[in-house]
């Protein structure tokens, strides 16, 4: 797997590069954008904004609450032990467990949704450059069609990059995360 990318020192240039690639007919999902901080003011930073996460969280809450209620009420029936003149299935106190598990369900569902949709954890080699941590913004294309590779490189460079690089990504697990310069 190969990739071509450019590193941009400021978001305006990165935006230009992204626009330029799009103009070259490369679809949005093929353009990789990586930045060291969220850049919501720029179009490229606002991609993939839509997510069902809140709804899923609510669903998680419902599931958690349901299981909490069932846990408390079913176990109380499983071996009925009276205490303090209270009912065997004491709804007031079950409410507390239900409430806590509702919140836990919501939190866990949010967490799971985040991990899945954000694609982490994923320690496989992917397109990345440590320069991102120095404030650069990476705009690149993975597996560019051979015919348009030169064109992509040109467009990346024209948008004002410091460098355009080509990498070969080896599919393997490990902590060496950035691709080797190809």
């Amino acid at each position: 797997m190969k990739a071509v990318y450019g590193l941009y020192s400021d978001p305006e240039r990165a935006q230009r590069a992204a626009d330029s690639l799009r103009a070259a007919g490369i679809p949005d999902r093929d353009i990789t954008v990586i930045s060291g901080e969220p850049l919501e003011e720029f179009e490229f930073g606002r991609r993939d904004h839509r997510t069902p996460m809140p709804w899923l969280a609510a669903l998680g809450g419902v599931l958690g609450g349901g299981s909490g209620y069932l846990l408390s009420s079913l176990t109380q029936r499983a071996y009925p032990i009276p205490t303090g003149g209270m009912p065997i299935v004491a709804q007031w106190t079950n409410g507390i467990v239900t409430y806590e598990l509702t919140m836990l369900g919501a939190i866990l569902m949010t967490l799971v949704t985040l991990l899945i949709t954000a694609g982490i954890p994923d320690w496989r080699a992917q397109l990345y450059d440590p320069a991102v941590s120095d404030g650069y913004i990476l705009i690149g294309v993975i597996n560019p069609p051979d015919d348009s590779r030169i064109e992509i490189e040109r467009r990346l460079r024209e948008s004002g990059t410091a460098a355009v690089k080509e990498v070969v990504l080896r599919r393997r697990f490990g902590s060496k995360l950035q691709g080797a310069t190809g």
Binding site: I81, T83, G84, G85
Partner: peptide, 17 residues
């Protein structure tokens, strides 16, 4: 006690009716 305060507070049912 019939409505014993000691019973419901026990987390493990060691105290019960």
């Amino acid at each position: 006690c019939d409505a014993a305060p000691c019973e419901p507070v026990c987390p493990t049912y060691a105290s019960y009716h």
